[in-house]
Design a protein around this nucleic acid. Sequence first.
DNA 1: CGACTTGTAACCAGGGTGTGACCGGGTGGC
DNA 2: GCCACCCGGTCACACCCTGGTTACAAGTCG
Lengths: 262, 262
Amino acid sequence: MGSSTGQSPVRLAVLDSDTGFLQVLANRLDAAGWQHRVLASPVPIDALVSMRLNVLVIDLAVLGPAGWSYLEKVCDRLPSLGVIVCTGRSSVSQRVRGLRMGADDWVTKPCHPEELIARAEAVARRRRRAEAARVEVGPVVAGELAIRADQFQAFVGDASVDLTRREFELIQLLADASGQVLPREEIYQRVWGYAMVHGDRSVDVFVRKLRQKLERSSPRWRYIHTHFGIGYRFAAEPLDPPAVAPVPERAAEPTPSLPAFV
Amino acid sequence: MGSSTGQSPVRLAVLDSDTGFLQVLANRLDAAGWQHRVLASPVPIDALVSMRLNVLVIDLAVLGPAGWSYLEKVCDRLPSLGVIVCTGRSSVSQRVRGLRMGADDWVTKPCHPEELIARAEAVARRRRRAEAARVEVGPVVAGELAIRADQFQAFVGDASVDLTRREFELIQLLADASGQVLPREEIYQRVWGYAMVHGDRSVDVFVRKLRQKLERSSPRWRYIHTHFGIGYRFAAEPLDPPAVAPVPERAAEPTPSLPAFV
DNA sequence: CGACTTGTAACCAGGGTGTGACCGGGTGGC
DNA sequence: GCCACCCGGTCACACCCTGGTTACAAGTCG
């Protein structure tokens, strides 16, 4: 999907003390856009958990004899974490032992940082693919509307708004940019995937269809607002029946102050 | 967990022509209780699919220049297959290219067969773990349906629904993701094990077979729901009992009875 | 007031899905 | 080894939904 898959960049930590190596590696990781950090000493397992890492690179040498048990513990407690041992000279039996213990790869120093990153990527890729289904993104809520990406559908309460594929893609795009005015061209570009030709009314028509279904499901709210000559903006606004301050529109509040009462 | 779990041994194939290496490797693989076979030449992808492999070890040298495209094709079409490149001297950029392309590991010959096996095990381990997670729990129940992984069968009461292997795999996948909409491509990927080609109707046909058998066994419930343009969703929903309405036919609309018409 | 933009409704073609039939291969019984 | 059966998978056909266009009304801005 698209160029910017970076929804969740790889999170990587290095447990090593070779400052030169760390420096070079850090540069490359930055260039690749990965989130990374250096661990000076064997961090408690619980701390590792809270880091929500994808990959851990570990040099057994810095831990001394305790390294093996630490490796074992990490692999045992965090089976979903990718582990790469990157250490100096080793024997075949040592490598076999490490891999059997749960490590995903074993790289011998000195090594090229680019290769280490490629291997980390391979490990993360495999993991990601295996767990891909488990990722449950929290539903986006606005007004009485809940947009659930895993369902390809929006709900009011527990009733489906019954959106079609395109309609859902559209409302999802708008809601993700909640509060922002999106120009037609950009909407078309991101939902339809290619450039809009002048005079195309598809966006307008689908906005209408959306509004229609939203009003049927959630009559007391307005969600999609027109900006003349520009495009549309998503914002949940209650239609207050009582005559109050006639503030027509303006605030682009994402949804910080939710008028809880309904 | 253990080495010889026997239930589903690792299935591995080697694409190489180094007979000495193959001989030694074969001995070790036999000792480890793995199912394995040697491929002399680049096998067509479809043939690879039918082998239901866990890991493929491949020597790029035996394929010549075509090796790269073959590697790419394999990784693309069989994303769930573990791929290890085991070849002679190579540059860093070659290794990075191969790993980026989808290979899970890159081993330089000459290498110790034991290490190669350990690396293959590490690659296969991940996959196995992902599948193992779902076998753990007891029978999944939904509506009057009980899906028993240990039986490879679904039951209504104590009567078998009489599902075939594929049918069971499909309903198990759907039920495991209960409530979530699964896109066709993902269903195919996870049940059939390789990428779906555009226009393949296998998923639809098996859904139909499933629905047919489910309706025969549990007529008052609906389990598989279509999401147009996306895929399917599993959710046990009782068909509204005929109850009182003397309306001859038509009722039982899941949607809130909107008397929109007339 | 006029040109342009947006809302609305109806319409139609294309494609996605349900469904039954068919076919080749594998398996088990005889 | 032969044969019947079962299962997986493809094909063809029918049907319906959806997406996108067009035409016209209503609204907005200069």
